[in-house]
Design a protein around this nucleic acid. Sequence first.
DNA 1: CTGGTCACCTGGAAGC
DNA 2: TGCTTCCAGGTGACCA
Length: 270
Amino acid sequence: MPELPEVEVTRMGIAPALVGRTVSAVSLRAPALRYPLPAALARHLKGKTLAGIARRGKYLLLDFGTGTVLLHLGMSGTLRLLPPRTPAGKHDHVDLVFDDLMLRLNDPRRFGALLWIEGDPNAHALIKDLGMEPLARSFTAKALHRRLTGRSAAIKLAIMDAHVVVGVGNIYASEALFRAGIAPRTPAGKVSLARLERLVTAIKETLRSAIRAGGSTLRDFFGCDGDPGHFQLEHRVYGREGEACRRCGTKIRQIRQGQRSTYYCPKCQR
DNA sequence: CTGGTCACCTGGAAGC
DNA sequence: TGCTTCCAGGTGACCA
């Protein structure tokens, strides 16, 4: 159930074990994920060496030189490193075998994706229109301000829009707005530059600390009992409806925005 | 372009 | 116990 930190921790967990290694076998199991699985994947990958794993937003890009495996974990996807020939359980959709080590994709809800891309992956339809990387230097209040000027949508929905900034999911959107002291329903275009400074800082800090917290779970990528998607920091507002605000004691409220739950402190966030 | 809604899927928890 | 309902960390497609 990954937001950007979970995806980045997954990348950090699997890359050292797999980069530089060669694919010996591929297993695909029905049914399809968000898109049909590429039937020719084994033909494309067998004998190919993994040159690197990059992340763009919540997508993982496995670079095999002649092409790229594009991976998205959706709402419920996880990747694990297992001994080859580990029996496949329910929702184990794809195995990439690297001789004595296997990368397995499990995704119960099947909102995830695995695609084979030839050519520049950044030109792919799913990638090319993505917004700013929140951890990049170029993600600044000024840049965000430029992007949000004139927009009437709620600030919470705006920072969750992957065409504006990638990787801020439903949990971290609420958490970042709390840290920045901004009410989630404020029209995005009406948030001042000064307050966007606080928001950009809050987004970077929230994501960075979650990645740091996830670092302690990296060993969980090995072995069948691993559960690497489920680390998380103590939330300040998310999931705490009716509980006391950690800063001022006011009861945390829950509302619906775009059919998703938003949590906020009515006193700390204006 | 923008904003709003729906759809895609399974499973766990809560309610009766 | 068993059935029903609601909810879940994402995002592309579609509409006005």
